[in-house]
Design a protein around this nucleic acid. Sequence first.
DNA 1: TCGGTGATGTCATAGTCTGACATCACCGAG
DNA 2: CTCGGTGATGTCAGACTATGACATCACCGA
Lengths: 185, 185
Amino acid sequence: MGRWEPNARGRLARAALVLSAEHGYESTTVAEIAAAAGVTERTFYRHFTDKADALFPDHDVLLERLADVARQAADDGASVLDAALAAIGDLATMAAAEPERAALSARVVPTVPALAGRELVRQRAIADAVSGALTERGVRAREARLAAETALGVWRVAVAEWVDAPDGRTLPEVVAAAAEAVRAL
Amino acid sequence: MGRWEPNARGRLARAALVLSAEHGYESTTVAEIAAAAGVTERTFYRHFTDKADALFPDHDVLLERLADVARQAADDGASVLDAALAAIGDLATMAAAEPERAALSARVVPTVPALAGRELVRQRAIADAVSGALTERGVRAREARLAAETALGVWRVAVAEWVDAPDGRTLPEVVAAAAEAVRAL
DNA sequence: TCGGTGATGTCATAGTCTGACATCACCGAG
DNA sequence: CTCGGTGATGTCAGACTATGACATCACCGA
């Protein structure tokens, strides 16, 4: 056992989300989050660039992973659109691994302008990562961007459906259905 | 002549943009902006909700105006897409009325994540306002949203072209050309 | 055994944003 | 003409965010 409890970062991210869902993002202070995680405020800022960052953890790792999935799909002979959709499917899989987190996040983020803005920036980063990966595999830039944008549209639609009508379907299922609908266009 | 110089709000917005373009958004303080405008820091916060707000002034007025344009175009018998494009054309016209501001803004905003996020939120608000206006005129929700999104896509493409290649064309001209290209699809 | 390393704590401080209260030119009622 | 209301601003205090500088100390390899 180390000098401190391990995984301070994970505890901080979780505390940030739980407290934000409970009392609202803006009225929970970084000091409270840090205290809930058993560390100092200063330590919070060693793990996250700012308060909002704690609600969007592992940004860079995520982008690299999605790019990998898109590249792999492209190598496996998937169409451009299907490769982009594969990346979004993987995004759904990751979200499904922490359904509670996904649900809380989907409920908290849209209600706070600062977080909504950050989510949109995140989505653009995902679009850039996926379209960049496809471009590496020889897809023309315009086509790659369109595929990425379309896949992201699928993501937005699916998430909206998933939170509005919790009919028991998992997020990956909803995403798959939405992806099927797009392919049918 | 009043007790204070008139139009403090305008002076603040201008100072915020000029100083941000000069020294960077994050390194210009609200105190500096207020001083440049000849008022107190507290007064700044009476005119704008936060620092970023000063770079996106008159948000609500803008939304109402764009909705009006879309409604008017719809009443004049324009197609759904053309009505949405009319609103975006009006947006370009307003930007062209202050070309210096538009150019500075286009240069500063994308480089600061917080501002980029806010710009994306603003664009979504515009999309909602325009599609809402069209819905009021009997357009089906899905069609209205698609038209608004398409028009906003035209805006993004046109702005990108305009800043990248300052070939002398005005923003409304570039927007008109992009709109024409979309209609041709 | 010992020095380096890495994660954390402590302290200080600039900057953001808000609430509460004070000021005072202007303006309309009488 | 005077007076009280109004609205925009100033002043002050304080909570909160974020960052730099330095201290601490368990762990780990030489």
